[in-house]
Amino acid sequence: MDEKIRRRERLDRGIKVRTEGIYAISSWRGIAYTSLPTAAFVLGLLIIPLAVTSMTWQKIIIIACVFAFLALSFDFLAHFVGIVCLGGAFFTGVGGYISGVLNSAFGVPLVITIPIATIGGAVICTLFLLPCLPMRGIYFAIVSLMYPLLFARVIQALDIFGGTDGLPGLATFPNTWVELYLILPMILILTFGLRRLVNEDFGIVLRAIKDNDQAVRASNINITWYKMKAVFLGSAIGCFAGAYLAHLYGWVGISLFALDFSIFPIAATVVGGVGTLVGPVIGAIILTMFSEMLREFGPLRVVFYSLILAGLVILNTGGLVPYLQRKYYQFEHWIEI
């Protein structure tokens, strides 16, 4: 295949194509207007921990970030690849246990365990989920929901990896600031990275698979292979959250496979707005704070957020971020004429 093909290309064309026409900003006000939401989001996330002084609230923010990771993973898979993954807990569990076992059995420091758990966990999760990738319909949802429950039972029954008691005494982060400023920039990178990815050509293929998988198959693209890459990415995000949690608490146990890690991120995504990628992060923060305020209700909190989730899904609300976006773009102001 050595044929040389040359083509004349205009320099401005690609830019115009990507911006879908001419898009010019002529004033500082215009620049401010278009970049304000993004700036508010970025600065808000980076400043929150400085604004709250109490240790408890800083911990709450960290937990919110962990859920934000899982919510991002869910949103990416569900809205951009069309894979409904109810197995957030599967990712946290696998990531957490890999990290925990490496740290407690082999004494590997957490700087190494977290990356290994992220990649290795993603490989394991992808391998386990691989059989249901060619299937259409509800298989992926069912199987991904079942895996964490089954894995927890298996660990319990076989009494491996510490059994019911889990593995205590793992390495923890030096202090809260490290915990915070490890995960916050990661959230930002991930949010904007994913947003970039779904508009790249690779992401376009994933979105096309969601829209119409048969047409993608007819276009000489192996959809299972692409779905696998997407699941790998999604589970890597989840496994990172799990490994991070393990070192945050200094403990792994079967509660990492708990259903909360599957349901809560979905609720957060639905609250924030499906398909926005920023929405899940904001939703996770709101929902975690809400959940914290309801701390005294104990188990009832789960009831609350299941009901919120069911309600929002059934009423098919767009979520918070699309609503705010709409309002922002409809923003009007008076001018002199």
Binding site: V84, L300, V313
Partner: peptide, 28 residues
């Protein structure tokens, strides 16, 4: 569920959430 019929993802999520709400209500 009738409001989300034909949308498998929403059906699963909604019914699961309802189920969890019922079960956790008993735990509470």
């Amino acid at each position: 569920l009738i409001r989300v019929k034909g949308m498998p993802a929403s059906e699963i999520i909604a019914s699961l959430a309802i189920g969890i709400a019922i079960m956790e209500l008993f735990r509470w």
